[in-house]
Write a protein that binds this DNA or RNA. Sequence first.
DNA 1: TGTCTATTTGAGAGCGCTCTCACTATACCA
DNA 2: TGGTATAGTGAGAGCGCTCTCAAATAGACA
Lengths: 351, 351
Amino acid sequence: MKESLDLESIARKAGVSRSTVSRVINDSPNVSEQTRQRVLAIIEQENFHPNAAARALVKRRTDILGVVIPTSSNVFLSDNNYYPLILAGLNDAIRQLDYAMLMWLGEVTQDDQHLMRKLSNPHLTDGLIFVSLPSDHPLYAKLGRLRQPFVMIDRPFTDVESTNYVSVDNVRAAEIATEHLIRLGRRRIAHITGDMTITDAYDRLTGYKNALRAAGLPVDDSLIIESTFNRETGYYAMQRLLPHKPDALFAASDTVAAGALQAVLEAGLRVPDDLSIVGFDDVDVATQVTPPLTTVRQPIRAKGEAAARLLVDLVNHRVSAPQHVILPTELVIRRSCGATATTSREVMSAQ
Amino acid sequence: MKESLDLESIARKAGVSRSTVSRVINDSPNVSEQTRQRVLAIIEQENFHPNAAARALVKRRTDILGVVIPTSSNVFLSDNNYYPLILAGLNDAIRQLDYAMLMWLGEVTQDDQHLMRKLSNPHLTDGLIFVSLPSDHPLYAKLGRLRQPFVMIDRPFTDVESTNYVSVDNVRAAEIATEHLIRLGRRRIAHITGDMTITDAYDRLTGYKNALRAAGLPVDDSLIIESTFNRETGYYAMQRLLPHKPDALFAASDTVAAGALQAVLEAGLRVPDDLSIVGFDDVDVATQVTPPLTTVRQPIRAKGEAAARLLVDLVNHRVSAPQHVILPTELVIRRSCGATATTSREVMSAQ
DNA sequence: TGTCTATTTGAGAGCGCTCTCACTATACCA
DNA sequence: TGGTATAGTGAGAGCGCTCTCAAATAGACA
């Protein structure tokens, strides 16, 4: 099936040397147009493809970028299309930059020796992108020994300054979302967090607290419930929150907000009349629920693209580490918060 | 960053030959326990990783499988989590079999030379998996020249017999869904198709028509509308269908059904009283809408797993092509069809 | 103690490419 | 006409591994 066909055989057929064929393949300018055409014709005719391994061996680069999404496949699948959007962004940029994308999904356990080896093998990929690497992840410990450049999507927990990452200003965005609720007259604002091993969730909680304090409102622990980024936990979290009579909710993601909304509605309360809701992300579900969610829009796809671009720059030494890319967010007003949408949007640019 | 560290240097430090280090790395039994331990210690100490390219060059395999999802990223993202589920299945099996997954997402145009080259390069991946390759896709023409084994998820349009694929019996499943509606007394059953360049959509339409004919009902073209696998097109398709007074709908996917449901509700009709709905897939959205959807459940994740396993078997010559894997489906009765759920489930095994 | 077998080790070729260096052919100028 | 610059080409080494084959060593037995 994979019959042997190498530069040498193409060279023979074209009546040139291996070197010349190599030049043609690599678009070297030092080949006469005539020779180039002849060689190209033979290559096409023979359906020849240069051996990627041989090339990688001498060039010391594979033109492959590794993408690691260590999130449990449960979350990967359930948080609406947050991860698929990240993936689409990564994919688009990686393809455009003419790299290939090697992907690992799901949990990596300490004892997953094979995978760990592959991941840390500096000869398989030219660089790595980690999406939402949780603080308690075994890979965290290995990061230091990594022999290749890497970029994280979301702020890392440790070594923040020295690590390359792409994120949004979650703290400020959460402050703005919460301030919005406060401005609407809400005083008992609850918060359902995301997975607290992910900085996004951590920072949004911080922003929420900041805003309450700044407004002179108490931070009431009974109004804060930890969950993970999915609809179901959002639903149950809200059920537990309801007895404490919140008049608003800032949810760590739209999926969580959607689950919470359902719980509120089932309890016979009206949204936004009895309770305002603000989500985060602005993914599909935000507009598919009734009432549609006021939410903090973040450029999810662009996060993927930016991370891929940054990594390629790093691989090619076009920038020097560490780099921190902070993308802007925007508060999108819809019906779930109860704001009179005279100005339908409140724009915020973080950084 | 990638300092040169090869077998030779490890060998020197351990006082053995390159061959012996190679044996240790490849778990060859012909190494004394003592030597193995010594070499392993040095490898760990030096943080050594064998060069994948060099290994691939001589072994003529990369242990990488390519996954191609040529669907526009629009559909990839919008059809609920169908594609992410396929991806999760592929990922799990590929990881378990100790391969790595190279992924290409999104449309591939004819002139995307770079990508076409990479895809057909038999030295980069050991095999390829195509997910829902549309009939009009430029890759279709290249399939014959491919120098590596490949598996398709979903029945191919052409060369069905000679192609390796994993699918469900969409025709039979659609027949059962439609028969169910007929049995409930529905007579004007509409159908909203999926993307007709994908066999799934094509076969479901066939099954729908088969069932009508078998029951002696007319196949009314005004009750059939073509759409793509997403919520929005489902919504608009249903709006166009409504004037023709259907009393039931069989939708090509749950996402489509969800969009259609919204249109029905907005038109002031009741589901299932005025109109029964049956979807396909049984993804999250099926239970998130009100009323929850009666639908044909297909083992999406298992399709990915089966495809990966089959490909690995093919790569290792453990089975001979062509192989056709048909997975079972199941009609799941929920509230959208109006069936009295005495038996809450009607089980069907295709093949 | 020597012979035979089994186990463990090493030497060396070669996988298919790139890249440097040297060489040839052509063009240009004085 | 000779000298020099330049475009185009080829030879050959070497990237880091695996794998075959032969050699060395150890173990078993008479």
